[in-house]
Amino acid sequence: MREAHGSILYLDGVSVSFDGFKALNSLSLIIEPGELRTIIGPNGAGKTTMMDVITGKTRPDVGAVLYDGEVDLTKQSEERIAIMGIGRKFQKPTVFENLTVFENLELALAGERRTFAVLFAQLSGTQRDRIAEILATIRLTARAGEKAGTLSHGQKQWLEIGMLLAQDPRLMLLDEPVAGMTDAETEQTAELLVGIAKERSVIVVEHDMEFVRTLASKVTVLHEGSVLAEGSLAHVQADERVIEVYLGR
């Protein structure tokens, strides 16, 4: 438990099984404040399940999940975890299709969360400015008034990142943020994420090795629900076991 102190996220010995299948097998992971961490691994390595555990969607069978060195995330609801400052972007972009781009950001914006309060809530001037700023960042200013359902796939990805920004989380979890993006979009996204990571901790799950290289962060390789290797991209790429898992023998 000594390492938990001072970390933003601390996973120790986390296991999850579904009907006998071990999705996570005694997984341990530590993320420092302000760190950008990339997680790679073949299909079924447990990447999505790990995010589910951190955000409260799935409860682990055993193991500790601590946020900010002290909050036990396994006891919190999804809403509480989000309010405490953990944001998540899904693999498949999920935006609210029947709301406008602006409204999507409005709902995500940090602030009032109580049911009766949101009934009467109004956007303040600073909040409007903040939304405008995010719209500019994600290049959707021109489409602010349109339904999110009309956006292209890449734009939806960006809107989702924008929603994450609006939430202003201390820890961001990004599940394949550049899936389905063009090369140019991918490059812009990488730039954006590196910028974001300066102010907060980010965990990126990615398949695209080119993109991982651009992020230039510490890399963790997951395999069969536990950590296989950890270090710089060059370091893990040289690891025998990683090569075996990826290439198969």
Partner: peptide, 16 residues
């Protein structure tokens, strides 16, 4: 409306 479209997503942005 957001709940109607994507209920679990609403939870992950912190609304009840």
């Amino acid at each position: 409306l957001a709940v109607r479209d994507a209920e679990s997503r609403v939870r992950f942005i912190g609304h009840s």
